[in-house]
Design a protein around this nucleic acid. Structure first.
Lengths: 232, 232
DNA sequence: GCAAATTAATGATTTATTCAAG
DNA sequence: CTTGAATAAATCATTAATTTGC
């Protein structure tokens, strides 16, 4: 229970109120990036919810940040590192093919490029998370050593939020989760305020979502219909 | 700590108490599926957080269900419907090619298969959500009308859960969101009492969160190091 | 008829793509 | 061009159907 009073519970909202550029998207500070990279280098690839929370909490000291940002950062960083690696591999292999008389998959297994920059030195691969070296061939070979049994993966927490009743100091960012759901439309910006959405005009523009207006109509209508005559 | 009153308010927990197979994964009831399908047929493709919450609340009357289940259901259903349609389209085209002397793309535009099983009868395609016929050619044509401007899409709910403080009656499930991360882990475990679990025996099979053992070690170690001597 | 073995569905995760802000 | 954010596709894993042998 530290005096985290400044918890800018809602950086965006606060910023808006201040007149700042309502940062529509997270802008990581140097420190934040450093720390994130450090964590990544330590082998953290897909932080668990707990970890995300902790990371977020820590990083909040260096600027506004939410769980989702951490989540996305790792997601993107991982993907892009892999991408980079893939490209390099490809280049390497290409060069290899163009230069040498293809040893027909020599015993050396030249295709195992592993570790563009963070590979374990030898066997110290005991990261809490999974860190499969994962060769990443240019375009074929789809590895899937995940069939082990899966540590158990970290899934949702169910719908738990409700636990923390009145402690307002923390406001655990809960972090985003899910790719598409989302909230209440434009007001969203203010987010934290706890959410809400006082009016949610309508996000219907590009993808799906029914307009909240008539949408809900339909939505509820359906329920009314089914709800009453169902059970059979 | 807890007296294990097993508030079986949750389906899983209750089932466990009863002797049922601790269902490690959601098992929708007939009613739930019917309603979900109805909603889908109404055009709902990617329900917003609010919608998910409402749907979940309603469906709870027919059995245990959580926001994430609803979320996933739509995700999967959408994907699989599309998949199915694609296959059918392919089959159709294949047959077409094998039978007739390819009219060189006749004026009829035979490639527009649209609607394997739920197409509008003639022009009544005014679903609130997008209903792009979206031909779905076997393997090309990647539509992307999403380039509109994006109202801002409905993203996560940020850290919204905190809203309802002590009202234990509803406990709006906030809904899961996110594909992989998950949320506030620790406390989460006990979540609402709905699921989870009093002792973690049941859901833990796949649930989430590492046991925070060595993993956190590293994690914190880093922060200690960076955190203390970082700042610059 | 029932239980073990298979197969088919489908819930849940992860990875790859895509979009757009800075 | 970089990269945070969002969505879709691919995959994995568990549960319900279904089949098979007794």
């Amino acid at each position: 229970m530290e005096a985290d009073h400044n918890v800018d519970i809602g950086g965006a909202a606060a910023a808006a109120a201040e007149g700042a550029p309502v940062t529509s998207r997270w802008n990581p500070t140097k420190e934040q990036i450093s720390m994130l990279e450090g964590l990544y280098m330590q082998g953290i690839r897909t932080p668990s919810a707990e970890q995300i929370q902790q990371i977020t909490s820590r990083l909040k000291a260096y600027g506004h940040i939410e769980g989702k940002n951490v989540f996305y950062w790792f997601q993107n960083h991982k993907a892009r590192q892999r991408q980079k690696q893939k490209q390099e591999s490809m280049a390497y292999i290409n060069r290899y093919f163009h230069r040498t008389p293809q040893p027909i998959f020599a015993p050396n297994c030249p295709n195992v490029i592993c570790s563009p920059y963070y590979l374990p030195q030898s066997d110290i691969g005991f990261y809490p998370q999974y860190h499969h070296p994962k060769v990443l061939l240019p375009g074929g070979i789809r590895r899937r050593p995940r069939t082990e049994k899966q540590e158990k993966s970290r899934a949702f927490d169910d719908d738990a939020p409700v636990h923390m009743a009145g402690n307002s100091q923390e406001t655990l960012p809960l972090f985003p989760l899910h790719p598409t759901g989302n909230l209440h439309g434009e007001t969203g910006k203010s987010s934290i305020g706890s959410s809400s959405a006082m009016n949610s005009t309508n996000t219907r523009s590009f993808s799906d979502q029914v307009e909240e207006g008539s949408g809900d109509q339909l939505f509820f209508d359906f329920f009314s219909g089914e709800g009453s005559s169902e059970s059979g």
